[in-house]
């Protein structure tokens, strides 16, 4: 139970982060200056109470802790599920479960791998298709050029995986935290679908716009 609550709470933290992250991404449509200034302001947030970049480091620690706890809980529950059914069925049938609910674990692995790549690519710029740059905007635009279509494709696949993960994850977190009631079950599922869809579309817009030349 502690595992599931930890899963739900860290999941909620990560969803809130994703919403903020998407807002940041969409600044790309306001041009290079807006995007780079936004990125710069993130480092100045909380100054002078916090040192330069202090807020960002607090966020990084919180996020990393959330990811680690989330992963630990997921692995523990996965292993428990494996132990709980040592002999598998010869025939299985999905009665009502959604695609997203039974891809949670594999989707989670894919998202974790993607996150590592994503940080190496656009945060630390260790991987730099299209060249290094000090400007986050240039890093992004260079990385999603049509000739690096495979990078974009990977991002698109990962973002869709995030969408499926959230579709079941948001609903499941709310149910685990005891919020579900029969009268609300439908609404909670709709909320989960809407948030998941909004984040998927929001995150797809920026890289695809670069690839298709809408943002240069």
């Amino acid at each position: 139970m502690a595992l599931k609550s930890a899963m739900a709470v860290t999941g909620v933290i990560l969803v809130l982060f994703l919403i903020a992250h998407m807002y940041g991404n969409l600044n790309a449509f306001a041009g290079q200056e807006a995007f780079d200034t936004y990125s710069h302001h993130l480092r100045e947030l909380g100054e002078p109470m916090l040192p330069h970049g202090g807020f960002l480091w607090i966020m990084r620690v919180v996020l990393l802790a959330s990811v680690l706890i989330h992963t630990y809980a997921a692995v523990a529950l996965w292993r428990r599920a494996g132990r709980a059914r040592p002999v598998r069925y010869q025939v299985t049938k999905r009665v009502q479960r959604s695609y997203s609910s039974y891809t949670m674990r594999y989707g989670g692995i894919m998202i974790a791998l993607f996150t590592v790549f994503h940080v190496l690519h656009l945060t630390t710029n260790t991987i730099h298709p299209g060249g290094r740059s000090e400007s986050p905007y240039e890093r992004m635009v260079a990385g999603f050029q049509p000739e690096f279509w495979y990078v974009t494709l990977f991002y698109v696949a990962a973002v869709i995986a995030v969408g499926f993960h959230l579709r079941h994850g948001i609903w499941s977190a709310l149910a685990t935290l005891g919020i579900n009631r029969q009268s609300r079950q439908r609404s909670l599922n709709i909320i989960a679908t809407v948030i998941a869809a909004a984040l998927t579309i929001g995150f797809l817009l920026t890289p695809l716009s670069v690839t298709f030349g809408l943002v240069e």
């Binding site: 595992l3 599931k4 529950l77 599920a81 009502q96 479960r97 609910s101 079941h168 609903w171 685990t176």
Partner: peptide, 20 residues
């Protein structure tokens, strides 16, 4: 095992025990 709110239980329950 641990519950992950998939809902197959309530879907097959002959007595219709609600998932909530």
């Amino acid at each position: 095992g641990g519950c992950t709110n998939i809902g197959e239980c309530a879907a097959v329950c002959p007595k219709g025990i609600p998932l909530d």
